[in-house]
Amino acid sequence: MNQIPLEHILALGAILFCLGLLAVFSKRHAVVVLMGVELIFNAANLNLIAFSRYDPEISEGQLFALFVMVVAAAEAAVALAIILRVYQLFKTSNVDELNTLKG
Rank of each mutant, 00 (worst) to 15 (best):
A23T: 04
A23R: 02
D96T: 11
L80K: 12
F90Y: 06
C18A: 15
K91A: 06
A43R: 04
T92H: 01
E97V: 02
L84V: 08
F51P: 03
I82M: 05
V71L: 13
A14Q: 11
E60L: 14
F90D: 05
Y54T: 14
L63Q: 12
L10C: 13
L19H: 00
G36N: 03
F64R: 11
L66G: 09
A76M: 05
I15M: 13
A73V: 10
L84W: 11
N42P: 01
L89F: 11
L10R: 08
F51M: 12
A72K: 04
F90A: 03
N99V: 10
L89W: 15
I82K: 12
F41K: 01
I49C: 13
P5Y: 12
A65M: 13
T92Y: 02
N94S: 07
P5L: 12
K91D: 01
L101N: 07
V33G: 03
L12V: 10
S52G: 14
N45F: 03
L84Y: 06
M35F: 04
M69C: 12
A76S: 14
I83S: 05
V71D: 07
A23K: 01
M1Y: 10
S26N: 06
A79N: 00
F17K: 08
V37I: 05
R28A: 01
L48M: 10
L80P: 06
N42E: 04
L63W: 10
Q88N: 09
G36E: 00
F67P: 08
L63Y: 08
L80Q: 06
K27R: 01
Q3V: 06
H8E: 15
V31A: 03
I83A: 08
L12F: 11
F17L: 10
V78M: 15
L19G: 00
A14C: 13
E57Y: 07
N45G: 13
A11L: 12
F90V: 00
Y54K: 09
A81L: 13
P5T: 15
G13S: 15
Y87C: 02
